[in-house]
Amino acid sequence: MFLQFIRHQKKAWIKLIAISITWTSLCTLLLMHYGLNLEGALLDSIIFSLLFLLGFMLLENIFRFYIPTKGNKILVFILPLFLSVIVLYSGDFLVKWTIPDALINTDFLHSIFVVRGFIILLIFTAYSLMLNFQGKLEEQVAAEDREVKMQQMVKESELYQLRQQLQPHFLFNSLNSISALVKMQPDKAREMVLQLSDFLRGTIQKEANKWITVQEEISFLKLFTDIEKVRFGHRLQVNFKVESGIEEMKLPHLMVQPLLENAIKHSLYGLTGEVIIQVDFRKREKNLEIIITNPFDPKAGQAKGSGFGLEAVRRRLFLIFGRYDLLKTNASAQQFTVELLIPQLS
């Protein structure tokens, strides 16, 4: 990084020297064209070129740290005017002081004094306007960058809050089940506590890593379903089907679990007998598609709840991908289906 900075500075100085030599040479030729000899024209050009360079550096340092506001726009024109007067009179004095009378034409210098001053003013004003415009652009870019970062921070904060809400949502249900099992079936209660411990440990370990592979997600979901089976016994069966070759595709952590929890809750409500839930992972073009299918009886009504699971997932998808079309639901006479599409970031 340091070497790149040195090379950049070196290139900048080479460009500056080349521009200065070109400008001085052109000024020398112009003055020679109007009657000055080579030595006088060259010295005159060098003096004014150095004063120009100092003026440019002064303007650049001023506008680098201060961009005039609407009330101070006049400074963009006053500073070049003030600087032009200083450069014009200083240059005229230095030319007459350093160049011998034999090498200069005093009448010619007097005749071009006003014209030279006007040209100096035009150049400094143009450079001042350019620096001011560049500063406004840099401010705009910086403001947009801050806005993007602020929006990203808001998204990250909301995503974190959603994740923190999702975990207690499942945890409270599990603790209620453990409480119910403690007296009637203590062995199952103990089993569920151990499984819940493993589940929460895996959740905490994945907290820093927002994206996990399909293989990791399925292991996580199987642990979750094992806990649910302790709650609901033989009535619950969850089948996972994974298309070959997609095990390393990735998805955000805790994206499928609330959907599966929602499917379990609504499947067991109002239905008797065994409940089979199907979870399919497959590739759809370049994206990962997850389809959760559960039995559904609309006549039995709906399980009590706020619908937090679906809404949380839908909100997380929008915050991550900026899209509302990645989660779809479909309810038929006896089946409820959730289709989840996860775009792959790489």
Rank of each mutant, 00 (worst) to 15 (best):
Q344E: 02
F113E: 08
L175Y: 07
A331Q: 09
M184I: 15
H33W: 15
Y269C: 05
T106D: 15
L94S: 10
Q344Y: 01
F336K: 00
Y34E: 04
E144D: 10
T213C: 02
L196W: 08
H266P: 09
I67C: 10
I86H: 09
Y66L: 06
S197V: 00
K188R: 13
F170S: 14
Q152F: 09
E248F: 04
S25K: 04
A189W: 11
K149E: 08
Q302W: 00
S49Y: 00
W13M: 09
R314L: 01
A189H: 14
L31T: 12
I320P: 06
T225I: 12
E156C: 02
L75C: 05
I46P: 01
F124W: 07
A189Y: 07
R201P: 06
L79H: 06
E285M: 07
I291N: 10
K222T: 03
E158V: 12
F232R: 08
G273Q: 00
Q278R: 04
Y160V: 02
F48S: 05
Q195I: 02
M1G: 12
Q334F: 04
A312T: 14
V313Q: 01
L159D: 04
L181S: 08
Q164I: 14
L162V: 05
Q344P: 09
T106W: 11
S111H: 11
T28C: 09
I123F: 12
R315C: 03
A303H: 13
V238S: 07
E39A: 11
G71N: 14
N330F: 06
I6R: 08
A41K: 00
L79P: 13
S332M: 04
K241D: 13
A312Y: 01
F82S: 15
F48E: 00
Y160C: 04
L103A: 13
Y66F: 12
Q215T: 05
A126L: 15
I19Q: 09
I123R: 03
R64D: 13
H169G: 02
T22N: 04
V115F: 12
I123E: 05
K11I: 13
G35P: 12
Q344G: 02
S244R: 10
T98K: 05
L181R: 12
G233P: 14
F318M: 01
L81C: 14
I62C: 03
I112A: 01
I212Q: 11
T225Q: 03
L345I: 11
V275L: 01
F93C: 03
N37W: 04
L122V: 13
L36N: 14
G301R: 01
E247H: 02
I204F: 11
I47K: 06
L310Q: 12
I264S: 00
F82M: 13
I104D: 06
L166K: 03
L181T: 09
L42S: 11
G307R: 03
K155P: 10
I277K: 03
S111A: 11
T125G: 10
D280E: 15
I19V: 15
V230P: 00
